[in-house]
């Protein structure tokens, strides 16, 4: 049975024409972005708008998160698989390989869990709390709880905002301490500042980053510009 004639799979790095390169050129090799469609831009415009209601913020950020998770999963390995269809035909397809788990960086990362579970049914999710140490001004691990066999899993690390990249980098260090190799971590991120992204990718060059949008940069208070405010705050509190 001939397999369907369809265009070859574009692996989606979308490096040729990428709005994100306006603020970070060239993109680090390990960074992948979503296809830069008008529709994605429209989704971002809604969640950036400070007038957007909490209900809309939830709904539209969930849509972006789902797209990001779908894109992240494309970097997991697959194996060839042949199945028989209900019409009695043979189909040469692919099967997913390897176990995964999610790890969310508290608090904003938790907002991405619902989107993750919509795409990966009943996936295990670990948590990690990192805060700035008042004395040293460095990110410090306060709490972490992972699945026991995390070292044998692919890890989707969830944090919507990447500003300086301090807590994300700390989280990766913690995961590595738990035996997860860098190349089995996929960092899923909604909005990144070029400074933080550059630092992150320089430190972990084999760790794949899926980011939805790379913004202009940081202001003097280390907020992402134009950004969308405090993601966790808008999602849970305002």
């Amino acid at each position: 049975m001939a397999s369907p004639t369809v265009p070859p799979p574009p692996p989606q790095p979308a490096r040729s024409t990428n709005l994100n390169q306006v603020h970070l050129d060239p993109l680090p090799q390990s960074v992948f972005t979503l296809p830069q469609t008008a529709q994605l831009e429209a989704l971002y415009t809604i969640i950036r708008n400070k007038e957007t209601s909490r209900g809309d913020f939830l709904f539209y950020s969930d849509r972006i998160i789902r797209l990001l998770v779908e894109e992240g999963l494309n970097h997991l390995p697959v194996v060839a698989k042949t199945v028989e269809t209900p019409t009695g035909a043979i189909y040469n397809g692919l099967a997913f390989e390897g176990k995964i788990c999610g790890v969310s960086i508290l608090r904003a990362g938790e907002a991405m869990e619902a989107g993750l579970r919509e795409v990966c049914r009943s996936v295990r999710i670990g948590k990690i709390l990192i805060q700035r140490d008042e004395e040293t001004a460095l990110p410090k691990l306060f709490y972490s709880k992972f699945p026991q066999d995390i070292a044998s899993r692919y890890v989707l690390l969830l944090d919507p905002m990447l500003a300086t990249g301090g807590s994300a980098m700390k989280a990766v260090e913690v995961l590595k301490e738990h035996g997860v190799p860098e190349e089995r971590i996929i960092f899923i991120n909604l909005v990144a500042a070029p400074e933080g992204l550059k630092a992150f990718c320089t430190k972990f060059p084999t760790l794949k980053v899926i980011t939805g949008w790379i913004d202009e940069g940081l202001n003097d208070k280390a907020y992402i510009i134009p950004g969308l405010g405090d993601f966790g705050e808008r999602r849970y509190c305002v």
């Binding site: 008008a38 831009e41 429209a42 971002y44 415009t45 950036r48 708008n49 400070k50 007038e51 202001n219 907020y223 992402i224 510009i225 134009p226 950004g227 969308l228 405010g229 405090d230 808008r234």
Partner: peptide
């Protein structure tokens, strides 16, 4: 639109 950071952002 204006973002909560107080910056204008042009999108679609």
């Amino acid at each position: 639109v204006t973002t909560p950071v107080g910056v204008d952002s042009t999108g679609k």
